[in-house]
Simulated scan of single mutants.
Amino acid sequence: MTSAKARLILAHGAGASASSPFMTELAAALAAHHIDVQRFNFPYMQRSIELGGRRPPDKMSVLQQYFTQQLEQTDASLPLFIGGKSMGGRVSSMLSLSEASGVNAIFAFGYPFHPPGKSQWRTAHFSSLAVPLHILQGERDPFGKRAELTDLSWPKVNVHWLTAADHDFKPTKASGLKQQDVICAAAAYCNKVIDEILLANQ
């Protein structure tokens, strides 16, 4: 994409690959805002594709290591951002980032705050984030609903709520919205944040 203003390395969720309909639609919506999106499959997902059948994700340390390799191999000619869908967003938020990494911010599209119906929160590392984390969360996401997060906040974490959406950004019929509308709204917010960061860095 010749007119790209920024680059986003985007990781998939636990159960669907980098070329899933959600990831493909999100990448297209971001590209419409002149954001170059680089998607990749974690090794366990690539094995699932090649050999057939579902495989559980590797350990978090393995996922982090592979994401870091993707980051190190990325062309640094554009302002750099990282993120992912659900698990991919969590992995990106747990990377050991230094100033040398060049990462400006992290975007999590549907953060898995906790397993549905359980109180095992995955936010311990939020207090030590090196760069800002922007979470785009459906209001009725069972991995972290709006009502559960009302009284919670972290210094470098910003949660942007998506109207009537679930974990896959599918809205209620009553909302009159389609999943594509929500994905486009998420991309537009992501673009707004990137524009603000680029302007501040000028």
Score class of each variant (00 low, 15 high):
4 A>D: 10
9 I>N: 12
10 L>H: 05
10 L>K: 01
10 L>Q: 00
11 A>L: 08
11 A>Q: 08
13 G>Y: 01
17 S>K: 04
17 S>C: 10
18 A>H: 07
20 S>F: 06
22 F>D: 06
28 A>L: 12
31 A>D: 15
33 H>D: 05
39 R>D: 00
41 N>S: 09
43 P>D: 04
49 I>T: 02
51 L>R: 12
59 K>S: 11
60 M>D: 08
61 S>T: 11
66 Y>Q: 11
68 T>N: 15
68 T>Y: 02
75 D>V: 02
76 A>F: 04
76 A>W: 01
83 G>F: 08
87 M>N: 10
94 M>W: 04
95 L>V: 03
96 S>L: 10
97 L>Y: 09
99 E>S: 12
103 V>Y: 09
106 I>P: 00
106 I>E: 01
107 F>C: 10
108 A>H: 03
110 G>S: 09
110 G>A: 11
111 Y>E: 07
115 P>D: 14
115 P>M: 14
129 L>E: 05
129 L>K: 13
129 L>A: 06
130 A>W: 03
136 L>R: 07
139 E>T: 07
142 P>C: 07
145 K>F: 00
145 K>L: 03
146 R>P: 01
149 L>T: 08
150 T>W: 01
153 S>D: 06
153 S>C: 14
157 V>S: 08
158 N>R: 06
159 V>F: 05
164 A>Y: 10
164 A>T: 14
167 H>K: 09
167 H>C: 02
174 A>L: 13
176 G>A: 13
177 L>R: 13
178 K>W: 03
184 C>V: 12
186 A>K: 06
186 A>N: 00
191 N>Y: 14
191 N>M: 04
194 I>H: 01
200 A>Q: 15
201 N>T: 10
202 Q>L: 12
